[in-house]
Every structure is written in structure tokens, then in C-alpha cells.
Amino acid sequence: MSKQPIQQLYSARCGQRFTIVKIEPLALKALLGEMGIQAGKNVQVLHRAPWNGPMAIQCEGITISLRKEDTIGVEVIQYNPG
């Protein structure tokens, strides 16, 4: 895999697709793990509520909504098919 710059899911724009690199802290990792969302999976940011409200992301066929600041520890890289 070519070196991609690591970004935070926190600042991602709507419609963008990413691959998860790392999820922190442990509590979030466990919570997302329950949904089957973990490092290596692809996510797409679908919606963002205004004024820094929650974001809706899609991963592995489900859509979940998370508060923006809870996703500070989620590191992603640009999705690269193939």
C-alpha cells in the first residue's frame, strides 16, 4: 500500500470514503467493535448535523451516528480501491 497521509475522521467531509487505521480510546474501540467496525474497514461519512453536531457514518452495511468529538481518536486514510 502506498503511503497515504493519516487524517482524523473528526474533520472528514460528507461523502468521503476512508479506511480506518486506528480507533482510540479503548471505550470507543470496544463500542465500535461491537458493531463490527474496526481498523481495516472502510467507512463513508454520509451526513453531518449542523453546528458541529453528530456525524452519520456508514460501515459494513450499517449506518451509525456518533458525536463529532467522540471521533477525535479515529484515524483514517483515503479509501483506495484495488
Binding site: 471505550a27 470507543l28 463500542l31 458493531m35 453528530p54 452519520a56 451509525i64 456518533l66
Partner: peptide, 9 residues
């Protein structure tokens, strides 16, 4: 206890 807000749509 700190809780994370997570809602499935």
C-alpha cells in the same frame, strides 16, 4: 461514567 453517544440509523 463517561458514555459515548452512538445511535444506529
Amino acid at each position: 461514567e463517561r458514555s459515548i453517544f452512538l445511535v444506529e440509523l
